[in-house]
Simulated scan of single mutants.
Amino acid sequence: ATDGAEIWRVNGMFRNTRWGGNGVIGDSIIATMDTYDQRVYAIGKGPSAITASVGPKSTVEGASVLIEGMVTDISPGTNTYEVAARFPNGVPAIADSNMSAWMLHVYKQFEKPTDVTGVPVDIYALDANNNYRHLGTTTSDLSGYYSLDWCPDVPGKYTVYATFAGSAGYYGSSATTAFVVDPAPEASPAPTESPPSAADLYFLPLSIVMLVAIIVIGAVVILLLMRKQ
């Protein structure tokens, strides 16, 4: 900031005393003591980490794949026992607009905010023809999870790059994965009708004629017997 405008605020994060001194700032990092827990905190832009995976790893042309992963905050404070125990899957990276309420939840056990969003993730791919393209942008959620479904359009190996460009609160991070697309199987030819067999042409019609003749003869015999009576 160059004009004195407020750019970030977090109420209730720290408690200072006269003997503890005021916070100091250097190299864009604020250092201050908190008399709630008798610790010295460093406040500033922190590192992030992103993971990426694709499922399935092998698919066929015309079928979709799901690209997914996590974006997490890996600042040194997230390694303390009290934070790591509450976030066994890592502390999610959260949008700058929600940072104040989120930091209070992570480090001071304030109530977990529910109206927060994650960070944007850009997905790129290098296909088998060495074409590098942007597949789309998605946003991680409250748990740090992101996903993007995409349908490959050419067969071959794809190298996928998931990138978080960074924000005012986090440095960026990226991850790489890969999958392969097999050519679509050729369509099976339509079944052809088999030519009629000799039995269909001669035996079956002849059998029907003989059966009809037997029935007619039987009927005539019955009529003659009835007349004699």
Rank of each mutant, 00 (worst) to 15 (best):
T78L: 00
I74A: 00
W19E: 13
E186I: 09
E6G: 11
E82A: 12
D141V: 03
P113Y: 07
M70N: 13
G62S: 07
L126K: 10
K45H: 08
A198G: 04
G166I: 08
V216E: 09
T176P: 00
Y107V: 02
A49L: 14
V209E: 03
T17P: 00
W102G: 00
Y145P: 03
F179A: 10
S53V: 09
F179L: 13
V160W: 01
A93H: 00
E186K: 12
H105S: 04
Q38I: 01
S188R: 14
N131W: 00
V181W: 01
E6W: 08
V91G: 05
K45Q: 15
V221M: 10
F179E: 11
I215S: 09
A128M: 05
D149T: 10
D149N: 03
I67Q: 03
F110D: 03
T192I: 11
A1H: 08
T176S: 07
G21C: 09
G21P: 10
P120C: 11
V121Y: 01
G218C: 08
D37A: 04
V216C: 10
P155V: 02
M210Y: 12
R9C: 02
K157H: 15
G46C: 10
I67R: 01
T51L: 07
I43E: 00
P88H: 05
G23S: 08
A178F: 15
S174H: 13
S143W: 05
K108T: 01
S174N: 14
L142G: 06
L206S: 13
A125D: 02
P88A: 03
V106I: 10
S48E: 03
A95N: 13
G12S: 05
P113T: 06
M103Q: 12
G166K: 08
V10H: 00
A42I: 05
V83T: 03
P183Y: 00
Y161K: 09
A162E: 07
P88V: 02
G166C: 12
